[in-house]
Design a protein around this nucleic acid. Structure first.
Lengths: 292, 292
DNA sequence: GGCTATTACGGAAATCGTAACCATG
DNA sequence: CATGGTTACGATTTCCGTAATAGCC
């Protein structure tokens, strides 16, 4: 199970096509075909059904492992490189959209205390934050998500990264002020199974997470927002397209924010970091452990 | 970073010798030398200092990742094989020594409810339990360890295995009845920094774990017992070689068992399993979730 | 028939063993 | 000088691209 083979396997599975994966990886169709054949031969079972190209049951199982393995391989390389390369002059930080809100002021503080360091801030998806930190692209990352109070976020199981909680905040259901439920003191997910939902999985609490927390499959999106801009989401809510679950502080005055009381969930943001860091990185990380 | 190269790297690091690793792996010295050279060339830094053969700082970092990666690779293969192979007729179970105590009666129950199945019980080290389950050698495993109450055990970070707590039990300091502290109602680790300790890392709470929990480096072993037989350890304690921390139920009447009150720790045993299982395996697992 | 995966084949590269070489204790 | 890691070199295998073949909408 050569990592190269695993990599083409996951790429093919993602693309749903041998030729697309080939061009993405810089191989020929033929090479990709041979890679898959080699893997299937090694494991003694078909991993993909062809035409359409879809993972078999065995392929699904392999996919669950392949990603984490590849990620950890990258992490290992990055970790070793870090012991030999001299510390980077620019502080690369990543954050998921909601987690990024708390970053501007802290970065300003770093700029003051460490005038020499260049800063690079990347806002990207929650998975990319963790993967980027693991792979060494970022020295520091902030992710957010919902969990039960004091429970850690369920990050990728691939890498044992240092993670520390930086804040927990109450969740609120964001509604237009004219919404019949807007005057409620608290809401439970059970009250909302028939509501119109906006699923904004890259920004707010993803509906899949809420379903898992509620133990119900009932929540269905009236509209999906595949974007990361908070103002756009709030505008969609205000326009009556539906409601969403957000950390209370993310809901502006134009909207009603009703506490989500049941199940008991919080919005948690966590700091993910590589083990070593420049003084600037350390001082940024310290910003979090001090203020809270 | 070919898995083969990683494997020879960890083997060399374990053996402290190229030639020993070569014979263990069925390679030539030369091949091993080439493997290491290839790795060092790929990563651009020496991984081992020669004569004596010891990992460099970079090598240490790589070692932290290599084991888990290799383990997960095995887990992937086993997971895929399980989807294609027909379910095994013999129920292979592993347990660490202290965890194994609760197994005999439960296995008898399985034998009653599933008369056809053959049983295979392996008692081995805690790491081997987890690794064996990950690699598919065992369908089910029981490990034990000490943690703060309700905290999960810190198993290998390599594999995301299904783990469920099966029991938590108070810890006790096992002492000869004649020991001056034997009459105490409770003891804290702080009281015991100057005591004579028996370190039995494969059986009782390892001193390293206690040190980490106490936040002190003071605990030093007067004797180390590298074995897994509880009676032998208890005899050592009774003979006055030192004391050890055990789950209360493991300490027999011949000895004094004083509750360990500070820090607040428990002896926890966890069930580790592969995701699928035969009916017999399911019923064995159910034995644990039912009884508590 | 067009699109896409597979197979056949050949050149380049990698792998591993034999054996000569070298360094350290 | 002997033990043990390194280097040189060659046979074998593997890998990947070109090109021809085959299978599904």
């Amino acid at each position: 199970m050569d990592p190269h083979l695993l990599r083409t396997f996951v790429t093919v599975a993602e693309c749903g096509s041998f030729s697309a994966a080939a061009s993405r990886l810089g191989y020929t169709q033929s090479a990709v075909s041979q890679h898959i054949a080699a893997l299937e031969n090694d494991l003694g079972t078909p991993l993909l059904s062809r035409r359409p190209v879809v993972p078999t049951a065995s392929g699904e199982r392999l996919l669950e492992h392949a990603g984490p393995i590849l990620l950890r391989l990258d992490a290992a390389r990055a970790d070793v490189r870090r012991t030999v390369a001299d510390p980077p002059s620019t502080l690369t930080v990543a954050a998921s959209p909601l987690a990024a809100r708390s970053l501007a002021s802290r970065l300003a503080e770093v700029r003051r205390s460490h005038p020499g360091t260049e800063l690079a801030l990347t806002v990207c998806g929650r998975a990319e934050v963790v993967e980027g930190v693991a792979a060494g692209t970022f020295v520091l990352g902030l992710t957010d998500g919902i969990t039960a109070p004091t429970d850690p976020l369920h990050l990728s199981d691939a890498v044992h990264l240092h993670t520390t909680a930086t804040s927990e905040e109450d969740l609120a259901v964001a509604l237009p002020k004219s919404h019949p439920l807007a005057s409620r003191r608290g809401l439970s997910l059970g009250d909302l199974v028939d509501a119109r939902w906006i699923d904004a999985p890259d920004l707010a609490a993803p509906l899949t997470a809420l379903r898992a927390a509620a133990g119900s499959d009932a929540l269905h999106p009236a509209i999906t927002y595949n974007g990361t801009d908070l103002h756009t989401l709030l505008a969609l809510i205000e326009a009556g397209h539906g409601l969403a679950v957000l950390p209370r502080s993310a809901v502006t005055e134009d909207l009603a924010a009703v506490a989500l009381t049941n199940p008991r969930l919080v919005h948690r943001t966590e700091l993910v970091r590589t083990d070593l860091a420049t003084p600037a990185a350390k001082s940024l990380a310290a910003t979090f452990s001090n203020h809270q």
